[in-house]
Design a protein around this nucleic acid. Sequence first.
RNA 1: GCCGGGAUGGCGGAAUCGGUAGACGCAGCGGACUCAAAAUCCGCCGCCCUUAAAAGCGUGGGGGUUCGAGUCCCCCUCCCGGCACCA
Length: 904
Amino acid sequence: MPPGALGAAGYNRCLDDTALKMQEKYQPSQIEPQLQRRWEAQQAYAAREDDPRPKYYCLSMFPYPSGKLHMGHVRNYTIGDVLARYHRMKGCNVLQPMGWDAFGLPAENAALANNVPPAEWTYKNIDHMRTQLKALGLAIDWRREIATCKPEYYRWEQWLFTRLFKKGLIYKKTATVNWDPVDATVLANEQVIDGRGWRSGAPVEKRDIPMYFFRITRYADELLQELDNLPGWPEQVRTMQKNWIGKSYGVRFAFKVAAKGDTSPPSPLAGEGGGEGELLWVYTTRADTLMGVTFVAVAAEHPLAAYAARHNPELAAFIEECKQGGVAEAEIAALEKKGMDTGLKVVHPLTGEAIPVWVGNYVLMGYGEGAVMAVPAHDERDFHFAKTYGLPIKQVISEKGERGREKGFSADAWEEWYAGKTGYCVHSGKYDGLGYGAAVDAIAADLKALGFGDKQVQFRLRDWGISRQRYWGCPIPIIHCASCGDVPVPEDHLPVVLPENVTITGRGSPLAKMPEFYQCNCPQCGRPARRETDTMDTFVESSWYYARYACPDAASMLDERARHWLPVDQYVGGIEHAILHLLYARFFHKLMRDEGLVPGNEPFTHLLTQGMVVAPTFYREGANGKKQWINPAEVDVKTDERGRPLGATLLADGRPVTLGATEKMSKSKNNGVDPQTLIDTYGADTARLFMMFAAPPDQQLEWSDAGVEGAHRFLKRLWKAVYDHVSQGPVAAYAGGELSGPLRELRRQIHQTLAKVDDDLGRRKQFNTAIAAVMELMNAIAKCDETGATARGVAQEALEKIVLMLAPIVPHISEALWTELKPGAALPEEPWPMADAAALVQEEIELVLQVNGKLRGQFRVPSAADKAAIEAAALVSEAAQKALGGAAPKKVIVVPGRLVNIVA
RNA sequence: GCCGGGAUGGCGGAAUCGGUAGACGCAGCGGACUCAAAAUCCGCCGCCCUUAAAAGCGUGGGGGUUCGAGUCCCCCUCCCGGCACCA
């Protein structure tokens, strides 16, 4: 039932009047649970499709149920809730749902540590965290709660999978994973520590295994193009996605692997098996430097490397060495660049020159062709590689520098301009003098004429491998049949239910050890077959949950309610999801659109990426040099008389501890502050206010106990101000009539604050400055000592507006105070207050006088004064006279409404 | 390594379109109230010189554009996020 349907009288009838009767003291522990119970009983935040008001779908990234809420959650969900409540007051039909990203690795880790089945652990965590979330007073429609580990949810993911599989949007190929040879298990990147398995300690190896892939590259162009149609997204996120997709225009061509003494050009009919006479394909965006190629580098896994190593034990050993270590790109990119000559040569396609082929540990098989042409003179990485191994460096690009003189090239040291595209070809025969574009065109044309190369558009984005050799995930709905191949599970056999009673050993894949799970019959031929035992990447669940909230009980994947609510108007979540999650969700939206399930091309109209919550760290070093991290709650920090930290001691023993860096709150650094303690001590409103006040939402937020007390102090002051005001008897808010100067000024500030807060919450989404403006207004009220009925009327107006402006941020205290200020009225029905333009008018304004850009004084002018009048007023001002000393100014710059700058 | 951010008093931050740097809060200092403490209220609070006023300096470092730069441009340092199996 929408709050409006009850009416103010009906809403207030649910009030326990005695318990909410105004106390002199602010007691959040009394107010908050009572209001939360009332909201729940009234279904005050249930969202309905038949509501005629414009819809506003406000979504915060759903949490992984790790055990208990952390500060990052409190921040994320408060931001979302402020926006949801603000838009509700603005007259929108708001949907704000909540659910659980319930599949994932930590449940299996917990199972290993505590011997609890992942399902049980997860459900227990969900129950606890739901209670915690409710204590925050979020305006959530809890009827729509979903958990991705429930078959009712993931069955539709399996259903979509089978549809996409039949469409050819899912395919199988091998991919490289981290392999722990001792635990016989595939490891996640975070489980590889310094090249070793986190539990076994064994050196990790790269291993190729078959996997299912989503053809996200088929949508690469659209995913890129549509970024320009997302003005509600932060520029930095769009830039990151653009670079991630990485559309490039280049040339794909082949070298022929030379048989001894053979310098003839390759034949287009040659094979690509990796032997002599066959083709070695590469892709380059710098075809203009083709004449400067001095070697070719292939990945250790490239067939040509294996071919060259057949009778070369040293090379074989090097290739083995390259297979050591994990697959994480960050790790590989940070490795020392190593390589070895294969002894093989390829033929330069244009010059016929023999070019050596090297194996390089920095060339990755999964990227492009797994082979690159190397131009040391014009690529920094190739340059350093060539220097290390004494390979030739051949300049083929030059550039004009100062006064049109040619820049000097030296193979001794790398310079930035070597890699530039603004020069022209040199030492390149017929291509000499051509610029970047013309040279690429000419060389591409020549390669094409030879029949083994052409221009090609390429993306950095790779297809999305979704197979995981894990238990706690959505089973991939495929049956492997010896005669029919990979057969998708038919619709009427879905869902493929994940068994919940399992024992996790940390060795191998649990489902692959459960015949009762994998033994089945082929849906096509009926013969015994084997069910796929891999589960899906958990990013798959989080790629479409936003749509399921619209219709959590639908008897299909989505129904018409998804068309009503989508797209999400406002999405709120951590910046760490800027690329992967947000790109996958955009991709899924397009997949679902093409299935006719969702409207529009993009899932999220506006995006707010919030910063992390950080806190100081404290530690002691053990005898073995290992740091023992101490929680900030167990530490007493001593400061000097200016508040600078002098040192810290452990409360338990009074002995010193070391103050470490301020870092993201984490288990590993033991610097997390439990939000539960905060809520228990000060109430949810204080927690919310502090989170919104301490930093702008997109910046990192530093935890501060003192800051929390400051936020609590403000709420106590607000409470007392209303109490004192109400105690003097009821009064109507000022509605017109003569005002004294100070009261007119106070009223002007009330309405100036209304305009500011509306802009901050609506357009800027910057809550700290909105709160600061309200605090300033509170200070102004306290300073105003006008008395009488009119003054009380203005005070009533001020307090009413303050309570309404704060309602989205601190909903409990606001609702309690509203009942006192306007007996019989219900806050959830109040519209957002708008500034009265008439109250903002000023007769005179103060401008700044600068001399040579430096502040030298102030002067007053009528607010209607034009430029000439302002200049005249400035020149006769005391400060101007003093600065000029009778001389005429050289120049006068007038910025109306701001300042006058006199150039003397 | 590559891509994207960030750096402003003792601290968190403000300055929204190139126009008064430090709003608001915290900490600190001084005072009021109190038998006392806590709470609360009032005042001060960038650095430097100073009795004071005034001047000077000041937004990570170096250079530039401009009447005027925290904001724009170039170079550098450090910190943070992401890098495809943490979520």
